[in-house]
Design a protein around this nucleic acid. Structure first.
Lengths: 342, 342
DNA sequence: CACTTAAATGATAGCGCTATCAAAAACATC
DNA sequence: GATGTTTTTGATAGCGCTATCATTTAAGTG
């Protein structure tokens, strides 16, 4: 009874198919399909029979066939610029938890902060006909934007706020956050505030611009030092040393992220400098370790997990209700976290 | 000319298909298929024509159809217990870089350290008919192991070494690493060595056992403190306080990871304890920040990126040469990194 | 230039599933 | 019990691609 099948098709993979289950249960294939996807449409009696056959045969649905027949892929593509940056795993967690419990799978890709790579990846990922796409930031190439729009797939840009989103957008203003932080430093009485950044991806850049705006507002002087190297504790300590040896009278430094700030904080400690008396230090992101440093680090907290969750929910909502999105744009906000390092 | 198509099929998604490209280029669909997948079989002339049509029409291949017809999915499933644990993003990077440049996509899932979730995820992921699967650790449920074996998909277990791998295996012995580290502490003259762990996933557990073996070898006393809470700087500092207040004469502590160790190190500093004179501290994993702490943290370094890369290569090799795998098991090793915290 | 061999193209069928419409069975109404 | 209404099941076709085999065309060979 199986032979004929094999005889007909020499390409058979040997895997149990839906038809095999149907035969075993004595029903038609389509009924099995319904029992699995729309159980309400099938009588209890048959559902039981089918469930048994599924178990006995160890049936595993074929996603490609399902996807081809229904043009639903149950796949969400997530494109991040980096994984080693601790910010993204947290966002990913939020995305993952929400999407997986809604029956979606996550196809992950890493651009290494390259827009060209992002374009290539978007192209590749579109082949999957994903039900939704998450991209990071707002600086996609024109080509990428068009690809995404043409694909007609729900898209959420995360991390930042786009004046003119591709589709949906969940993020915050890094400019504002950094502007507020710098203003806060001024409000504490610091006069000569520096800024240190590394990697200088676009969000770091906007943080720098926020700092610059604040300095301008206060008629202060800019002390900016930035490197294209990746961020790390070590990089933070090196840049810190470089900046204070150039400008020994700086009394506070805002860093483009907590890694750098922590490295600087430790370096300052190593040199016997008192924090914040000799030098105040502020970071960005509020990573897990920041409040445990000595002294605890003043920083900007952004709701990373929550951002992932909300982005996922926007996507799910739009997938369910093709028309109105629940969100065009969500400003997820940030908060200045004052601690003893300033 | 397009109308007839739409008339025939009301389900058409409107997306450009391979047949559309064929029609536009004036060749048969199968020739287009070949031009894209086996360019060597198609003449230059036609390839050019086809390339133009692809561009003009903006053709994007349909992965589901390709996968269904060829039973190749070009998808590799990666199942991790956690993303927030900094170890995994590094491994993932290694996997990603190798797999993406070989034309594969990564489907990522997170078990949150639950074997049951892992089983569910494996089941779901098998629906994708992935070309390969990466799972973390060696403690899959019996069911999971059988599912994986039956699926006939190449599998690599990573992180640890399995006596009896499901298929392939790239990892290291956490027991040995921790045993060596503890021996090393004894060799430095420490007499009362404690162990602090959190989360106590299976790798942490084996690290604890390595510690215990070493203590036993030295006829020493065990001072173990473990918590099921997640690891963090804060958790490390709390457990540290708890352990030293119970056993004030402990002179060294091995931690199940660097996060905990760093938290303890900072807590000790906060309390005016000298490291390593009053208390020596050692971690595990050699995370990015560990050498920047004050004092720098003695730890065990494991080649995370490399492990991901090798696992990916094993997979690719086995996919290419269905028969002999290049590796059944690779011991990726570890190294004790002595720094000033001990 | 007929004749073999190799290279390039095409026709056909089917991968495993679901959308769609049609038929049958179960239930309700008078 | 004949009629209409709903619920449950099935037959058919096709999603967009590639494996397979058949055919054509080009390239060698003596």
């Amino acid at each position: 009874m199986k032979k004929e099948k094999l005889a007909i098709s020499s390409r058979s993979t040997g895997r149990i198919t839906l038809s095999d289950v149907a035969e075993h249960a004595g029903v038609s294939p389509i009924t099995v399909s319904r029992a699995l996807k729309n159980p309400l449409q099938v009588s209890e009696k048959l559902k039981e029979k089918i469930a048994i056959s599924v178990k006995v045969l160890g049936y595993i649905p074929n996603h490609a066939a399902r996807s081809l027949a229904s043009s639903e892929s149950k796949v969400i593509t997530v494109i991040f610029p980096s994984l080693s940056n601790a910010v993204f795993p947290d966002v990913l967690d939020g995305l993952h938890d929400t999407l997986v419990s809604a029956g979606y799978r996550i196809l992950l890709a890493n651009t290494h902060y390259s827009s060209e790579q992002e374009e290539t990846l978007v192209k590749t990922m579109l082949e999957q006909n994903p039900d939704g796409i998450i991209v990071t930031g707002i600086d996609q190439t024109q080509n990428t934007r068009e690809l995404l729009k043409l694909s007609n797939t729900p898209v959420v840009q995360i991390m930042e706020l786009d004046q003119n989103p591709i589709d949906m957008n969940v993020g915050l203003s890094h400019f504002d956050a950094s502007y507020d932080l710098t203003n806060y430093l001024y409000s504490l009485g610091y006069k000569k505030i520096g800024f240190i950044g590394a990697r200088m991806d676009l969000r770091s850049r906007r943080r720098m611009e926020g700092y610059q705006k604040s300095v301008l507002d206060q008629n202060g002087n800019e002390y900016v030092l930035s490197s294209l190297k990746n961020t790390s504790f070590k990089q933070g300590s090196e840049l810190f040393v470089e900046l204070i040896s150039k400008h020994s009278d700086i009394d506070a430094i805002a860093f483009s992220n907590d890694d750098l700030a922590a490295g600087a904080l430790l370096e300052a400690t190593r040199r016997g400098m008192r924090i914040p008396e000799d030098i105040a230090i502020a970071g960005f992101n509020d990573l897990h370790f920041s409040e445990e440093l000595i002294p605890p680090l003043t920083t900007v907290s952004i709701p990373r997990y929550e951002m992932g969750k909300q982005a996922a929910e926007c996507l799910l909502y739009k997938i369910a209700n093709k028309k109105q999105p629940i969100c065009n744009q969500i400003n997820i906000g940030y908060s200045i976290v004052p601690r003893q390092s300033t």
